[in-house]
Design a protein around this nucleic acid. Structure first.
Ligand code: FES
Ligand code: FES
Lengths: 145, 145
DNA sequence: TTAATCCATATAACTCTAATAGGAATTGAA
DNA sequence: TTCAATTCCTATTAGAGTTATATGGATTAA
């Protein structure tokens, strides 16, 4: 399950990608329709995840770090929610052993969930912010949701 | 994320499929390495999900309902954890509208997550308990994990 | 100096998870 | 009839995670 935090993060990044310029968090919150104070915390996490840069003070704001086609959904989702895999033993970035399984190599549950995690990764690590923008049929009006 | 409950449910069903006969919950708990009392509740849910039948009293127990190749992982996961989709608006069985989106049809987040949900469904609705059994290289010894 | 803005910390309400506990009801067999 | 095995039902619990809100400090440009 994608958390609201992660969904808001994606929306914030799409707004930044669409505008292509520095925006204060209040403007992002308004355009993305996200609770303003919650968004502040999210933007901090996105900065730590290297997805954007922030400038403080008057006329400060947040700018996308790098081109929209370089920022992948998988990276954002991992930074917000952790692993893509349905189960820790099937995760590559957040691997953790299963206490209730004795032999990981033969575990049929793990094998099945590895297939799932690979499919999820194929989609999310293959989609960039630019791809998201191009999904919108109403690009000009900036109505993305 | 797959809950422990769901993982235990899958393990219980794999045990039942492998043994191919009626088993009391205590025996399932032992073979599946699952907390016995927790398993009781899980078995009740699996019965409600039509995955097995239960007989009470002495010599009672639980029996797989239907052939192992007919019971799909997707069905089990949905019964235990709910939707497969990462987000409610992208779910077919557990659909729910997004409060923070005005137009679902153009929502780029939803479009991306629909792709994810379809891939997950392809895997989990395409794998049966029988398939899980066949994934094990040590079929004879019944070591599945 | 002021206003805008990011940043850090604390907190709160709520829900979900992963169980455990105790006992009632059912059944087959001695 | 009694016993033991077993499912079934209800309640409880401790801890974690989610989704925020509140307050105020630090930084910056005009
Ligand atoms: S090793 Fe993770 S489910 Fe078996
Ligand atoms: S409609 Fe669900 S994320 Fe936009």
């Amino acid at each position: 399950m994608l958390s609201m935090k992660c969904k808001y993060a994606l929306k914030a990044l799409v707004v930044l990608a669409a505008e292509g310029k520095k925006l204060p968090s209040s403007a992002i919150a308004q355009k993305a329709r996200v609770p303003a104070k919650f968004l502040e915390a999210i933007l901090t996490d996105l900065r730590k995840a290297d997805a954007l840069t922030s400038e403080r003070g008057a006329h400060g704001g947040h700018t996308l770090k790098g081109a929209p086609e370089k920022i992948m959904l998988g990276h954002v989702v991992r930074a917000m929610d952790g692993m893509l895999a349905p189960i820790p033993c099937a995760s590559t970035f957040y691997y953790k052993k299963c206490d209730d399984c004795t032999d990981e190599k033969i575990c049929v549950i793990r094998h099945a969930m590895l297939e799932v995690r690979n499919k999820i990764s194929e989609v999310l690590d293959g989609l960039s912010l630019e791809d998201l923008l191009n999904m919108s049929p109403k690009k000009k009006q900036q109505l993305f949701w």
